[in-house]
Design a protein around this nucleic acid. Sequence first.
DNA 1: TGTGTATACTTGACTACGCAAGCAACTGTA
DNA 2: TACAGTTGCTTGCGTAGTCAAGTATACACA
Lengths: 119, 119
Amino acid sequence: MDAELRAAHGLTVVGYEALLLLSEADERALRRIDLARGLGLTASGVTRLLDGLERAGLVEKRTCSEDARVTYAALTDAGAERLQRATCSHVGSARALFEDRYSEEELETLAELLGRLRQ
Amino acid sequence: MDAELRAAHGLTVVGYEALLLLSEADERALRRIDLARGLGLTASGVTRLLDGLERAGLVEKRTCSEDARVTYAALTDAGAERLQRATCSHVGSARALFEDRYSEEELETLAELLGRLRQ
DNA sequence: TGTGTATACTTGACTACGCAAGCAACTGTA
DNA sequence: TACAGTTGCTTGCGTAGTCAAGTATACACA
């Protein structure tokens, strides 16, 4: 699935999820550290991930006026567009992966059970 | 958990599982390619993994008399010992991780559901 | 018997992380 | 107001894995 996403849209799954989190955030921006937590990465992992996304023009830096330590990662228009294009096929293949194997009810059970692991 | 295992016994989780698979195999040996499949790695991943385990003396190479292409990975006595010592704490912490969160029944459900993914 | 194809394995180059250390900026406390 | 501790971020280095290509062997078949 990662390979699929990469071939079709030049995004890794983690990159995709980063864009997704940003798209759902206020002002389409998040502090890098919050993005790290959301993705289950360390701060340095995010630095490297965003390096790539910034170079591709999908995300940009934005400073914080109240706290000079923080820099926001903000989704660009190009990033939003890329996300939208990728979402179609990605959601499709994820759906296929799961809907082939599980009923609606089983999916809910699975989600609930796995959710407990991350606490 | 990986960090725990590494600190206490100098093993990664994948390394531990490799030793475990070998310990359960006939003659405590497996073709490298079968080990790869069992671990969900590629052939080159196994080459690298076994590099480390061989250097540590936990696993050794053994040739195959019927097919000169294959080389077996065989558990050494040191490897069996290390596995045994690691098993105690590793199984303990895995048990803690899951038994804190799930009932017996939920564990079975989870195992069955996740099992379907790997097909 | 030679040749094409498949299999087992290794190697080099690369990616995606983590950790430790360091810097700068913020905050709480004496 | 000084300073100790904390937080956000980056950088250098190490690790675990992948893929592509190469080697050696095995096998099938004209």
